[in-house]
Amino acid sequence: MTTERADAPPPGLMQIFLAFSKVGLTSFGGGLSGWMMREFVGNRRWLTEGEFLDGLSLCQALPGVNVVNLSIWIGYRLRGGRGALAGALGMVVPALILALGVVALAGEAVRGPAAHWMLAGVAAAALGLSIQMGLRAAWRAARRGVAPAAIVAATFVALFALRLPLIWVVLVMAPLGIAQAAWAMSRRGGG
């Protein structure tokens, strides 16, 4: 992939912070990485689609909140360590302040039954979001074979039915999953 970027000098730290704040404060209902791609690749042309997808794959492979990881990656590409800090702070801090303000205010507001039930309704609809995301991911994994499907099922049962602490589940299942993927790849002759 060729690197075709605008010849303009890289954006300043304040510009980076504000651009990430904008994405952080205008993205509702998940799908943040899609919004980031539109903003930074499409609108601002700060990096190419290939660079973006490269970073996305890193952030999905590493632990941590994907969108924050991605902010660090993009900020780092633009302005090194300080750019990474500006990007991550822009993504997190304004949205965090807003979220805490909402909790503080809602503490009073939801004492009424109407507001309480409306939030319960939002929660129920939002669960659909989680479940469809999980189902899609499970389907993609299951199509790769019986072993990945078994890993999905075992992780689910351990957390939901057995209520085991997440740390033990991940410490067992993550190496198992990676070993299985590596084994499957080597059997097909790399790739």
Binding site: S57, L58, Q60, A61, A123, L127, S130, I131, M133, G134, L135, A137, A138, R140, A141, R144, P148, A149, I151, V152, A153, A154, T155, F156, A158, L159, F160, L166, V169, V170, M173, A174, G177, I178, A179, Q180, A181, A182, M185
Partner: peptide, 24 residues
């Protein structure tokens, strides 16, 4: 890199489904 990415995907799927089921 591919092994890590592919290997974690089913673990993540199980975790997300468990989150949905727990709250339900």
């Amino acid at each position: 890199q591919k092994a890590v990415e592919r290997g974690l995907a089913p673990v993540a799927a199980g975790m997300i489904l468990a989150a949905g089921a727990t709250l339900l």
